[in-house]
Design a protein around this nucleic acid. Sequence first.
DNA 1: TGTACATCAGTGAACGCGCGTTCACTGATGTAC
DNA 2: TGTACATCAGTGAACGCGCGTTCACTGATGTAC
Lengths: 184, 184
Amino acid sequence: MRRSQAETAETHVEIVAQAARLFRGRGIDGTSVGDVMKAANRTHGGFYRHFETKEALLDAALAAAFDGMFDKVEKGLAAVDAEGAIGGFLNSYLSADMVAHAETGCPVPALAGDMARMNEGQRAAFGTGIRGIIARLADAIGGERSDAERQAARTFAMAVGAVLMARASDPETAAAILAACRQP
Amino acid sequence: MRRSQAETAETHVEIVAQAARLFRGRGIDGTSVGDVMKAANRTHGGFYRHFETKEALLDAALAAAFDGMFDKVEKGLAAVDAEGAIGGFLNSYLSADMVAHAETGCPVPALAGDMARMNEGQRAAFGTGIRGIIARLADAIGGERSDAERQAARTFAMAVGAVLMARASDPETAAAILAACRQP
DNA sequence: TGTACATCAGTGAACGCGCGTTCACTGATGTAC
DNA sequence: TGTACATCAGTGAACGCGCGTTCACTGATGTAC
């Protein structure tokens, strides 16, 4: 039966939120449209009232995941001064919680492997998300802008690589990599 | 018709080599058993004379990919002294060629995202491969061993993150990240 | 404000497709004598 | 060294399954009067 505009909007938001969670947790191929709709307490057929294809859902889910990450980075860096920016960032990014919960963590280590095989437009959108994170970290580092951006890019690359490898390894290897990368 | 033992062994090696190439290039889910057998110039049914499951093929393909990477790292570092070890490693790891050709490149940025969702035993094998690369880099860095290992881990994490993000981004973002990470 | 009806969000069965895997078959290879 | 036969690598059709997507249907919502 038809739902009100408010209910429809709520459903839309819920589908995107569940997709953002499941894509990060189980991968894009590992998450079916049916999985997303079940997580959103709907049946799979209704999906196509909200998105033309699974790919369109991915675009929306990535945008939502990056927005959430932007907030997290901004909040985490608001409390520290320029000296402690990199250390503070690494401390939260490389936390046990972030490593263990890909589904609510940064979209970059969770999805970059899948994104590498996507089309140009989707990679460009992902690149914009990456630059958004690096820019926020560079803001906190301060000083000469291009130096700050380079340092932010290097720090973020190391953090992404560390989380990625930690998730793909046994616990001992994971702990050794994270510990080595924790100091700025 | 039955093949000689030598031909059978050749086929086995060829299946593993093609799998190592295709898994890195197209992802694990993105590569079917039929794709691998076609690349090896065989029909898909014969696959099960060589491996019990696709998962067993993945194990063999990963081992082959890591062995190839170990060789590449050793050869690349043989020519440099301790001072230039990190710079030399980054220079070859972050080369345009490595970034553009995931199918022949390092298995870590190519497959770690997929491996994060695999079982404990497979993650342990992947972790052993990661430690193998870090250990070879630490050998070249020299000096106090645990310091060298930490520095090697940090350098490798940055390199992996940089390649991963470069592949998942637009060319401009990719170039900026690689340039920032190139200096040791 | 009340009525009549067109719209459309959501349901669940059905579709074609590609996947991993199985199987009956073929005939050259390897082995036992 | 030669012969007889069991083995088994490779073929290609077939399997069940889950996927993304479509569709006919339902009935509450939104709108035109």
